[in-house]
Simulated scan of single mutants.
Amino acid sequence: MNAPPISLPALRFFRKIVRGYFRRHFHAVRISGAARFSALAKPDAGPVIVYANHSSWWDPMVSVYLAERLMGARRHYAPMDAAALERYAVLKRMGIFGVEMNSARGAMTFLRTSEAILASGGVVWITPQARFVDSRARPLEFKPGLSILASRVAVSTGWCTVVPLAIEYPFWDERLPECLLHFGEPLKVDSPQDSEKLQQELVQSLETAMNTLRFIAIQRDARNFDTLAHGKLGTGGFYGGWQKLKSSLTGRPYQAEHTVLPEYGRDVASCKERGDDL
């Protein structure tokens, strides 16, 4: 089996749409632990699986966004319920492959397709909870596919790296929410392992990443993150327009944000220009 084809023009267009979505709907996109993921960008880093908690419709958009920003040189794929994918068939051209849920045939399709992707140098993104779950819910419950896949790939290629990604969308001080992300410690699987034991390790790794993100998120301090993008600021609408006009008439600086504080956190683009580590 070969990895599903990706239409690069369609993918570039879709990524542009996703960037616009984040600018319009979030105050900022902020990330912690980005170096743990970007360090795996080179193909000689071996097979890479990213798995994340699944609390929102936005989660697949996060994977598209991070794939472009942090690992654009590799091709990225993600499974999706086959019935739902038929409603959005255009996504098939962008690395999304259909899987029948809750069936043996669907499980085998997932494993074989994912193995082909990883063998070709692609990256697979998975939400092993397979349904929307509040990010505060514990214990985490995974479908077994992730651990089985990681163990099978370790047998066929020698090793694979599984990276936990924690995601939250809290409101801080502004009208729009923050998109907060944290990559936890990668787990290198380099030998066949009992799938239940490996699953417990994967659950614990993601739970640790989620707890870390929760801890730094409640501090409401952007200095704990690198800032990938800024979205819309201020209240918008009539009141926002009046504030701009008032500032121009009085000669005072216009402060769009609700909290009159400097924007903390490092801008990733500026860091790359200076050669800083993320």
Rank of each mutant, 00 (worst) to 15 (best):
P170L: 02
R252T: 11
Q200R: 14
F22W: 11
L40Y: 00
I49L: 14
A78F: 10
G95A: 04
L278W: 05
N211W: 02
R75Y: 03
H27S: 13
V48H: 05
I167R: 04
E196I: 05
W57M: 04
V133W: 09
W159K: 11
P43R: 04
E185G: 08
Q255M: 12
I167M: 13
K246T: 08
K232V: 06
D173W: 09
H54A: 02
S135N: 05
L176R: 15
R136Y: 05
S56F: 00
V260E: 15
A52H: 09
K16I: 07
S120Q: 10
Y51M: 07
D221S: 02
P60G: 05
D277I: 09
G240S: 06
Y77L: 13
P170F: 03
K244V: 09
A78G: 14
R36N: 10
T259K: 13
V260W: 13
N102C: 02
R105Q: 08
T250N: 00
D277W: 10
V155R: 14
H182D: 07
I96L: 15
D134Q: 11
G234K: 02
I49P: 14
V90K: 08
C271A: 15
P60V: 01
F26W: 03
G275M: 07
P128R: 01
S56L: 02
A269M: 05
Q199M: 12
E86A: 12
T235D: 13
F132D: 10
S248T: 12
Y88M: 15
K272L: 15
A39L: 10
L165H: 01
F142T: 10
S120R: 11
L11Q: 12
D59Y: 04
L165A: 00
R93S: 14
F215A: 15
A45M: 03
